[in-house]
């Protein structure tokens, strides 16, 4: 009978990505660039929120955008046309998330010396992107009112890795059974430190607060 030799490995599958991400973060730190990883489910209003926010950041921060999708370039074109902010489109080729290596490849095509802030719009998905550290300084996510206030209970990892939760589409609150207090309670169960900002990309509610948060974050990152 053939003898079987066992080679012990005992290594987390995520270990290499975590190291890559930490390396990328320290490179960005050295160059004074702040990377925000923005996540959400499809249709929560990421692109519309970005367009509104970018308009309010004009003259305050130099921003670049990386749009990640499985396919198409509609988002990058939409952002660039609406705001004039340089935007590139990343295709994940069927993958449901970005990892640190893919993020690095994307950043190679961004003018980092002309950027204070790079916003990475991750693939619309509440599960997989939360597993992979992209090398971003902070994780943010958008939860929209029609999705329901129970999402932090159903997608615990996403809410525990996010430093900022934007609750979007507040203008439709009267038509949905969305309980903002419950939403806050559930988000804080997952991450007691998460900042929550109710916004409406359509009416502009809360967008100034989000823009101010970004300006402060970038300032802290450059000073630290």
């Amino acid at each position: 009978m053939d003898k079987v030799k066992v080679i012990e490995i005992k290594k987390s599958v995520f270990a290499d990505n975590d190291e890559d991400a930490a390396r990328l973060r320290s490179e960005l730190k050295r160059r004074g660039v702040y990377l925000l990883n923005l996540m959400s489910s499809p249709g929560s209003g990421k692109t519309t929120t970005l367009i509104q926010t970018l308009k309010r950041l004009e003259g305050r921060l130099r921003v670049s955008v990386m749009e990640a999708d499985i396919d198409s370039d509609v988002d990058a074109i939409k952002i660039q046309e609406a705001t004039g902010v340089p935007s590139i489109q990343l295709h994940t080729g069927g993958m449901c998330h970005l990892d640190a290596e893919m993020t690095r490849q994307g950043l190679d095509n961004v003018a980092l010396s002309d950027s204070d802030l790079v916003i990475l719009e991750n693939v619309g998905n509440l599960v997989c992107p939360a597993e992979f550290d992209t090398g971003a300084v902070r994780n943010a996510m958008i939860l929209s009112v029609p999705e329901g206030h129970d999402k932090p209970l159903k997608y615990p990892l996403m809410f525990s890795v996010c430093d900022l939760v934007l609750v979007n589409k507040t203008d439709v609150m009267p038509y949905f059974d969305f309980d903002m207090d419950k939403c806050r309670e559930y988000v804080h169960m997952r991450n007691p430190k998460a900042v929550i900002i109710p916004i409406c990309a359509k009416t502009g509610e809360g967008i100034d607060a989000f823009a101010d948060w970004l300006v402060q974050e970038v300032k802290n990152w450059k000073q630290q």
Binding site: V4, V6, E8, I9, S12, F14
Partner: peptide
């Protein structure tokens, strides 16, 4: 209490590889 934390069950680890010694 809700003051609880996961102590195991989140692993995605390669434990070992097995090869035919021949």
């Amino acid at each position: 209490s809700a003051n609880t934390w996961l102590i195991r069950g989140n692993e995605v680890e390669i434990k070992e590889i097995q090869v035919n010694d021949n």
